[in-house]
């Protein structure tokens, strides 16, 4: 989960109250899925327990009278995370692949399925294009990321469509 690290990173910028953290998180990383307040405070509680942040109570009442600051340990965690590459996911067993092979095995219309899948992916590409148009740069870059993944699927669909005959022979022979 990136939520604790994102909150830590925001705290490295400046000490904040839970409310401000939630607002900043939602603005940069929320994308229509705002962070519930409960999760903000439970995450901060865990980070405090692990010595990565400290909570300083301020006069007044309500749950938001704590100002959180990052500790050297927390800083270290952010620094490590930011330079650590994420493993390229080994999408070896995709749903798409399973559907195609099973369809061939059972003598169903695998080509028809691939056509429909292609059209569905293309529709998603159009939705993402729409999101990019006129939206802020952060939305556009996230949409771009999604588009490159959808494009990868589309290429796979085309390559598989082109090799469907050979794949069918192989599946039936085994």
């Amino acid at each position: 989960m990136t939520v604790p690290l994102a909150l830590l990173g925001l705290l490295e910028r400046e000490p904040s109250h839970g409310y401000d953290l939630k607002r900043d998180y939602d603005a940069f990383f929320g994308r229509g899925r705002p962070l519930p307040f409960g999760q903000v405070y439970s995450t901060l509680g865990r980070l405090a327990r692990d010595g990565k942040v400290t909570g300083q109570s301020e006069p007044g009442d309500g749950p938001d009278r704590k100002r959180y600051a990052i500790t050297p340990l927390g800083r270290q965690e952010v620094a490590t995370w930011l330079v650590e590459p994420v493993a390229a996911e080994p999408y070896l067993q995709t749903v798409l692949f399973t559907k195609v092979v099973l369809a061939l095995m059972l003598g169903r219309d695998a080509a028809g399925y691939l056509d429909a899948q292609r059209a569905t992916h293309m529709r998603r590409m159009r939705e993402l294009t729409e999101i990019k148009r006129g939206g802020p740069l952060t939305d556009a870059l996230l949409a771009d990321h999604a588009m490159f993944h959808v494009e990868a699927d589309l290429r796979w669909i085309d390559v598989t469509q082109a090799r469907l005959g050979a794949l069918a022979e192989m599946v039936r022979a085994s």
Partner: peptide, 21 residues
């Protein structure tokens, strides 16, 4: 696909035939 996504819809030509999903 990005270019095609700027269109209202797409068709696929395969072996000289137009497949319009």
């Amino acid at each position: 696909a990005r270019v095609a996504a700027c269109a209202d819809r797409e068709v696929v030509v395969r072996d000289g035939r137009v497949c319009d999903p």
